[in-house]
Design a protein around this nucleic acid. Structure first.
Lengths: 75, 75
DNA sequence: ATTCTTTGTAAAAAACTTTTGACATGTCAA
DNA sequence: TTGACATGTCAAAAGTTTTTTACAAAGAAT
């Protein structure tokens, strides 16, 4: 059922801050497809740790400057 | 074929620094199985970003204090 | 008005991560 | 030497992410 993960991201804002980098350009830069960037940006699922590292390095920041995690209430 | 990902981790060392926490105890603390901890620790695959966050918080450090990424030569 | 770019949707298949369960080994201590 | 505990292997199934392909809408483009 693939619920929305409790991880937020600032990908869109970072793209804008980097010369209005397009989703397609970011996808190519990190070696994934555009669909993957769209899904991550929309929070439909959380990326692999490897993709997270690649994205953060493209923007020259740390992983936790791109992605944030809030502990879900322990069900 | 699930090649070994270019991500290293210091999970074992951090477990030891935290009172010789067992793999089973870590697994329970982050809500995964022991098999998953073993596989991550051995670098057989890289965890989800969510698991990475949970692990780092158990040890009270940042994601990049647990996991490291070295850019692979662009094949 | 058509061309180009960007963003978006959708669905199936492929790839990868995680779980489940069973079993093996070594150590430690009692 | 039994019992508990820690780590490890293996394999199949289940769950999640990523790819692939195709199409749609909006804006700039001028």
């Amino acid at each position: 059922m693939a619920r929305r993960p409790p991880i937020g991201n600032r990908i869109r804002a970072l793209r804008e801050q980097h010369g209005n980098m397009s989703q397609a350009a970011l996808a190519e830069a990190i070696g994934v497809t555009r669909q993957t960037v769209i899904a991550m940006e929309q929070g439909r699922y959380s990326p692999s740790l490897e993709s997270a590292f690649r994205i953060s390095r493209v923007f020259g920041v740390g992983v936790e400057d791109v992605f944030s995690w809030t502990e879900p209430p322990d069900s």
